[in-house]
């Protein structure tokens, strides 16, 4: 995959018009029993952009993320990654497909050090089998050193130097969020899924995290998809934003487009549901 153009921070600066979308959701519908979580949602994510999915509670944001990461299997619709259709995404093989994610409630190894937490997600590119690891053969040693270097690199990138050998469980919350982001990045994902990266953070943490996400995108040439509650963060960080409400996509566009969209305002501020204006409901 050619590295995307990451020279500009402007909303449409990362596009290569002809390349297939980094991710395309084609008419996805997902229901749990009678409850429709997603209705006919289509979404395109361009390579190298920061794409946010927002919406009120229960709008289907998490469901959408779980469809992309293979946790849920939609009843209809298709997922394309770099133009390749994936009828079924195996959550266990996510890293191999090139998708890494973070979790709203963190999924870190609390008992392991920061360095180990990051290094473990590095997909073993060579590095030898068990025996050569055990006998510390040159090839295995080289791979181990490489993994350590890469992990160290990320530790520095995310300003975690002082915590390097600390148990992750003993770190402040904001730092743990950064460790999780670093761990996602060491796998060199094409797609980085962030599930509420700002949840539970204070103002300063949010500011830092916004910077980290943006510079991580630039440095590692990855495409970022995030769902987030904090609208000011989303408006500031995103290239494009899709808005969900009751499982339907009600708006899609640049932050400016979305900010002034009547349906979005209605969804967030509430409308008289007997006379919905612009809100399509099923």
């Amino acid at each position: 995959m050619p590295p995307p153009d990451t020279t500009s921070g402007s909303p449409n600066g990362h596009l290569s018009a002809r390349a297939p979308a980094a991710l395309a959701l084609d008419h996805i519908s997902l229901a749990f029993g009678g409850v429709r979580a997603l209705t006919d949602v289509s979404l395109e994510v361009r390579t190298g952009e920061i794409r946010s999915i927002i919406g009120p509670n229960g709008a289907g944001k998490s469901s959408l993320l779980n469809v992309i990461s293979g946790v849920y299997q939609p009843q209809s619709g298709a997922v394309y990654i770099d133009g390749v259709p994936y009828p079924r995404i195996d959550p266990a093989r996510l890293a191999a497909i090139g998708i890494a994610r973070t979790f709203q409630n963190l999924a870190l190894f609390d008992g392991l050090s920061v360095l180990d937490n990051i290094a473990i997600a590095r997909s073993p590119r060579g590095g030898g089998d068990l025996l050569s690891q055990f006998l510390a053969l040159p090839e295995a040693r080289r791979a181990a050193r490489k993994a350590r270097e890469e992990a160290d690199d990320l530790v520095q990138f995310f300003g975690l130097e002082t915590y390097r050998h600390r148990r992750v469980g003993s770190l402040p919350y904001g730092a743990r969020k950064r460790v999780e982001l670093a761990r996602a990045l060491i796998a060199r994902p094409r797609l980085l899924l962030l599930d509420e990266p700002m949840a539970g953070m204070n103002h300063q943490d949010k500011h830092d995290m916004t910077q980290f996400i943006r510079s991580a995108r630039d440095r590692f040439s990855t495409t970022v998809i995030l769902i987030e509650h904090d609208l000011s963060v989303v408006m500031n960080l995103s290239d494009r934003i899709a808005v969900l409400d009751f499982g339907n996509k009600i708006a899609d566009g640049t932050p400016t487009d979305v900010r002034t969209n009547d349906a979005v305002i209605a969804a967030y501020l509430g409308v008289d549901h007997d006379h919905p204006q612009g809100v399509t409901q099923s």
Binding site: L94, A107, F109, I120, A121
Partner: peptide
């Protein structure tokens, strides 16, 4: 060690 620490997180990193 990772699996011992948290099987859920282990699944999450593949």
């Amino acid at each position: 060690r990772a699996v011992a620490d948290d099987p859920f997180a282990a699944l999450a990193v593949g």
